[in-house]
Deep mutational scan, measured.
Amino acid sequence: QTTIQVRVPYRVVGLVVGPKGATIKRIQQRTHTYIVTPGRDKEPVFAVTGMPENVDRAREEIEAHITL
């Protein structure tokens, strides 16, 4: 297991999390990772935990939302 920090712009935190957390839950299920969402007043950084290859996939999925 490994944990990485995925930093995103403030404006996309809501996009990545999705309505009621649906998007981030879907990313967690698809990539078999555990993702901690940043709090409102915190740095916009997601903490992604899982097997290294799964963590990389989750990071790619999160980063895909940044380019939307």
Rank of each mutant, 00 (worst) to 15 (best):
D41A: 07
V8Y: 03
I4Q: 12
G21A: 00
H65K: 11
E53S: 08
R11A: 14
T2A: 07
Y10R: 15
R57A: 10
D41Q: 03
F46H: 07
E61L: 14
T49L: 02
Q29F: 01
E43V: 10
K20L: 11
V13M: 08
V13D: 04
L68F: 13
T31G: 02
P9Q: 10
E63H: 12
G21D: 00
M51V: 08
Y34K: 15
A58K: 06
T2S: 06
A64H: 13
I66V: 13
V13Y: 02
K42R: 12
M51Q: 12
P9R: 02
V17R: 09
E61F: 09
T23E: 10
A22S: 12
R26N: 07
T67G: 15
G21Y: 01
F46M: 09
M51T: 15
T37G: 09
G39H: 09
V36L: 09
P9C: 00
E60A: 14
R57F: 03
K42G: 11
E61W: 06
I62R: 05
M51Y: 09
E43K: 06
T3I: 06
E63L: 14
G39A: 13
R59H: 00
G18T: 01
T37F: 09
V16G: 03
P44G: 00
L68Q: 15
T3W: 08
V16L: 10
A22T: 10
A58I: 00
A22C: 09
F46G: 04
R30K: 13
D41W: 08
V36A: 12
T31V: 06
I4H: 02
V45E: 08
D56W: 12
L15T: 13
T3E: 01
V55S: 11
Q5I: 07
P19N: 10
T67E: 15
D41E: 09
Q5W: 13
P52L: 04
T2K: 12
A64D: 10
V45C: 12
V8P: 00
G18W: 03
P52F: 00
E63Q: 12
F46K: 02
Q1C: 15
E43Q: 08
T3G: 02
H32F: 04
E60Y: 11
V55T: 09
T67W: 11
A64K: 13
G14P: 13
V17S: 03
Y10T: 14
I66F: 11
V16N: 00
Y10V: 07
A58L: 03
G14F: 03
P9T: 02
E53N: 05
K42H: 12
F46N: 06
V8S: 03
H65V: 15
I24K: 06
F46S: 12
L15W: 14
R11S: 15
Q5R: 12
Y10H: 15
G18Q: 11
V12K: 10
R11H: 14
V55E: 02
L15E: 11
